[in-house]
Design a protein around this nucleic acid. Structure first.
Lengths: 237, 237
DNA sequence: CGGCGAATTGACGGACGTCAACTGCTGTGG
DNA sequence: CCACAGCAGTTGACGTCCGTCAATTCGCCG
């Protein structure tokens, strides 16, 4: 139930918490608890009231939206990042379902405590506003990506961004199932397969979860990455 | 240059400012100025540094994104609403171009002053966080709308929401050119025309900018409006 | 070893974008 | 006051992209 001090440090290092007064941080963390969840667990369903701020400390999770029996992945979260912050701030129902993709360690912090801490510690409230600003801008990028680019272009840009975040080597490893990637990129799994085949002409080679980019310049000319869409891939709320 | 007191009241009434201490509000407003812009003016270009928080006091404006010589409208703003808040909070380049659609009165508040006020007035910082939360959730709705619905469904839901916000009468008036609506809904003007013809079978009649909904129940069954996508149409940042 | 689900492939259809032509409105200048 | 230029909107024809359905293969876990 209580956290290992190494985990506490990692959470404390989050931009969200690093500016908060020590008292504020303690009041948030002592009321919280760390829990392990198996893969595929729904932490929170769309439409549910939100009682906790979540922090993904280890593992992998996704945020998804539903309508008319269809589902789409809106974001994939990596450690260490917070999520559902907006709903916590407004004390209102969640718009997205949060689900673990892998076995994950998740820190849950009382929403009530978060709202109280904001009122009492201006520095923390500012940090929350900054975090939300980053999340907002991440979604602006998502919308532009969706509305302005075709499926293969979205995939190409995803691969280039992922390559960069994995150190820039020629070959990268997809962090989750292709079906999740397809949903994130706004297409069907079948279509993702075809998009990968399209990119073969641009020097992209796929072997299971491993993807190699043999001619980065060529792929780049197709993808036309843009700092106002792709740079600085943000976490989420 | 200075504001009419009736305009000050309207700005003060915004959720963003209503919780702030009187001193905070004064410090923001006295450094700001109100300006009139003709239709079609670019207030701020994508990629530019942001020096001001904008408040649309009167008129109509839009936020748009660009990539590869294509453009899309991300939000249409009505009075009274603030925009570009996230970039102001982070003191960073804008991700969207802001443009007037009609002749508009726009209040410009020093970004520096906003950031200072947040640090000094926790209640204001909380209000900023709440505003950003609302904007974030508005974009989540936008993404779900885009990824989960087809073009005619998006139009149908837009019409129902607009009908509601215009008082619930059978006929509503489009607040701007159809080409802007098409871009907002993520389609071409040609396709918007066809989407309107599709909806004729569901009791939708179009006469220039006037749209009548003769069989709301039928249209509703097509649109399947959802409180987690459509309700509570939010302003923007 | 057997079964289930992920991934791929092919065939097909529908939705949407593009190009072009035409209409109607509006504002402007002769 | 009217003629005309320019743009929004519509319509049709056509092509492409993408989703759907079905069959098959592969790998993993029971």
């Amino acid at each position: 139930m209580s956290m290992r001090s190494v985990d506490i440090e990692r959470v404390r290092a989050l931009a969200l918490f690093s500016g908060a007064a020590p008292d504020t941080f303690d009041s948030l963390i002592t009321g919280g608890f760390l829990q392990k969840f198996p893969a595929g667990t729904a932490l929170l369903m769309e439409g549910d009231p939100v009682d906790f701020l979540y922090v993904l400390v280890d593992g992998l999770a996704e945020l998804q939206g539903t309508w008319n029996a269809k589902e789409t992945t809106i974001a994939v979260l990596r450690p260490v990042s917070s999520f559902i912050l907006a709903a916590v701030v407004l004390d209102i129902d969640a718009l997205m379902t949060a689900r673990t993709i892998e076995r994950s360690d998740i820190l849950m912090i009382s929403g009530e405590a978060v709202r109280r801490a904001m009122k009492e510690d201006a520095a923390f409230a500012v940090a929350v506003a900054e975090e939300l600003s980053g999340c907002y801008r991440g979604l602006v990028r998502t919308v532009k990506n969706q509305k302005l680019r075709g499926a293969s272009e979205r995939l190409a840009n995803y691969l280039l961004a992922e390559q960069l975040s994995q150190g820039g080597g020629a070959t990268l490893v997809l962090p989750h199932e292709k079906r999740v990637l397809a949903s994130l990129l706004g297409m069907t799994p079948e279509n993702l397969s075809r998009a990968f085949s399209n990119l073969a002409d641009y020097g992209v080679e796929v072997n299971g979860p491993e993807v190699s980019i043999h001619r980065p310049a060529v792929l780049d000319r197709l993808a036309k990455p843009d700092r106002l869409i792709d740079s600085h891939l943000r976490p989420s709320t």
